[in-house]
Computed example of a mutant assay.
Amino acid sequence: MKFPLTFVLLALASSHAFASYPSPLQDFCVAINDSNSTVLVNGKFCKDPKLAIANDFSFPKFRYPRNTTNLVGFKVTTAFGLVWHFPKAEPNGPFVNQFPGLNTLGIAMTRLDFALHDLNPPHIHPRGTKMLVVVEGMLYVSFVTSNQLNNTLFTKVLTKGDVFVFPQGFIHFQLNIGQANALAFAFLSNQNPGLITIANTFFRSKPLINVDVLTKAFQVDNKLINYLQA
Rank of each mutant, 00 (worst) to 15 (best):
T215H: 06
H172F: 15
F62K: 01
L112N: 02
L208F: 15
S189Y: 04
K160H: 10
C46V: 05
L40S: 13
P122C: 07
P126H: 12
D221T: 08
A79L: 07
S37E: 06
L71M: 09
V76D: 09
K130W: 01
N190K: 00
S15M: 13
V96G: 03
G128R: 01
F185W: 07
K156G: 01
G128I: 06
A217M: 13
L153M: 14
L228E: 01
N181D: 08
N103H: 15
T38Y: 00
V133Q: 14
L208G: 07
V8F: 10
G93M: 02
N33T: 08
N200E: 09
L5M: 04
A186F: 04
K75Q: 15
M131N: 05
A186V: 06
P100G: 04
K160R: 06
I124E: 01
G81R: 00
L224Y: 04
Q174A: 15
N42E: 14
L102V: 02
F143R: 00
P22H: 06
S146P: 05
N67A: 09
L71W: 03
A186E: 12
D221C: 03
N33V: 04
P207T: 13
N42F: 00
N42T: 07
L119E: 10
G81F: 04
Q148F: 02
A79Q: 04
P126M: 12
I53D: 15
R111Y: 01
T155I: 10
F173V: 13
T215R: 10
L224S: 08
I124P: 09
A13R: 04
V165T: 14
L153S: 13
T78E: 12
F95H: 01
I196D: 05
F166E: 02
S37G: 09
G169S: 12
R204S: 07
T155W: 14
F99V: 00
N120L: 15
A230M: 06
A184D: 07
D118V: 00
L9I: 13
F28P: 14
N210I: 04
K216G: 06
F80Q: 03
V141P: 13
Y21N: 13
H117E: 08
G137H: 05
F218L: 14
A31M: 01
I209K: 12
W84V: 10
T145L: 08
H85F: 06
L195Q: 09
W84E: 03
F57Q: 05
Q148S: 08
A79P: 04
A199I: 10
A31Q: 04
A11N: 05
I209C: 00
G128V: 03
F114H: 06
S189D: 15
S205A: 15
V165C: 07
G81D: 12
T110F: 03
T152V: 08
H123N: 10
T38S: 15
S58R: 01
P87F: 03
C29I: 07
N67I: 04
N222Y: 05
L82N: 05
I32N: 13
G161D: 11
G101I: 00
I171L: 11
I171D: 02
L228H: 09
N200L: 04
I53R: 10
